[in-house]
């Protein structure tokens, strides 16, 4: 075991898979000798060579086209989009093409692509670096969307994503890259896709969340505990498809739920979670399911992040509202 930050765990997952499978290729803008703008691919090119880990020209659509073509010739691409706000340049490549390759070929071809990309607020990035756009991906049939919140999950989920024979969009929250360390096994292990994790047990209210908001919700849970409310925190980990069983099991126990996301109210995947709870557990609910989200504006100018991003006090407030409903 070693103490790792999330970014180290991510590098370790790629190193593990580059070692395990000669068809794994890692590429994107500045991921080669430079080691990535966040050092996620640090040392990988010198260890595995330029054939396996390489830079591309600056064009996101070209990068996903490259991934599809490499898939067709037997490779397992791990491509990077430098910041997920740049996904619009390659929406066709991801949502229009790789997501559909297996289906449009009646199962004859597949795209075992992992799309790695950083996102997330709280680090005062310039425009279109931090936007939460997982909701767009979640609406594309044929994609899985994974968002880890801890170093341990990041390594296990990334190894699972790379091994998956279909495309996975793997979103890495920038604020979590180096915010804390955790024990991460040095050997290979996987964390199942499509499975949520209960990160804190509680009996009074279920908080369904993902990404950086897992930590915001855990902080809120501490505050709530001081006030006698025990919150159960469900970390979705895979946000598309969502693990309905784990959510419903928790809601049936607590009878109350809040969904917390960093994305705007009209975006993200919170609406989907609420709908699933309504469909599967309405008779167990003592209160409506409420949402904590960002406001429906464009992602804020850097100096306005603090007043715009959801924080733990918003979670505490909504949790109390459903408990006292």
């Amino acid at each position: 075991m070693a103490q790792m930050t999330m970014i180290q765990a991510i590098t370790d997952a790629m190193r593990t898979e580059l070692k395990n499978d000669e068809n794994v290729l890692v590429f994107g803008e500045d991921v080669g000798q430079y080691g990535g703008v966040f050092r996620a691919t640090e040392g990988l090119q010198s260890e595995f060579g330029e054939d396996r880990v390489f830079d591309t020209p600056l064009a996101e659509s070209g990068i996903s086209g490259l991934s599809i073509g490499l898939s067709l010739t037997g490779f397992r691409p791990v491509m990077e989009i430098q910041f997920f706000g740049f996904v619009f340049e390659t929406m066709d490549g991801i949502s229009g093409q790789m997501s559909r390759l297996r289906y449009r070929s009646g199962g004859q071809y597949n795209a075992p692509v992992t799309v790695r990309s950083p996102f997330g607020g709280g680090v005062k990035t310039p425009e279109l670096h931090a936007d939460s756009l997982e909701g767009l991906m979640a609406q594309s049939p044929g994609l899985r969307v994974v968002i880890p919140s801890s170093p341990y999950d990041a390594k296990g989920l990334l190894i699972s994503s790379i091994r998956d024979n279909d495309p996975v969009v793997f979103l890495e929250h920038m604020k979590l890259y180096r915010s804390f360390r955790e024990e991460v096994p040095e050997e290979e292990y996987t964390v199942d896709l499509d499975k949520a994790a209960v990160k804190r047990e509680g009996k009074d209210v279920t908080i369904v969340t993902y990404g950086a908001m897992v930590h915001t919700s855990l902080k809120a849970a501490e505050q709530l505990a001081e006030e006698g409310i025990e919150a159960e925190i469900v970390d979705l980990r895979t946000v598309s498809p969502i693990d309905v069983d784990t959510i419903i099991e928790s809601v049936k126990k607590t009878n109350r739920a809040v969904v917390v996301q960093e994305a705007q109210k009209q975006a993200g995947i919170a609406n989907h979670v609420v709908a699933e709870i309504n469909e599967h557990a309405i008779l167990h609910l003592e209160a409506p399911v409420l949402r904590v989200t960002a406001p429906d504006t464009v992602f804020p100018f850097a100096a306005a992040e603090d007043i715009w991003l959801p924080d733990y006090t918003n979670v505490v407030e909504k949790a109390k509202t459903v408990v006292n409903f």
Binding site: G69, L70, L72, T73, Q97
Partner: peptide, 24 residues
């Protein structure tokens, strides 16, 4: 591949297929 409906998508994919052939 099947005929591509999104005009241009086949061009970037071909760059990838060709790189794959070169690597293999």
């Amino acid at each position: 591949l099947s005929p591509q409906i999104i005009i241009g998508a086949q061009i970037v994919q071909t760059a990838g297929v060709a790189l794959g052939l070169k690597k293999k």
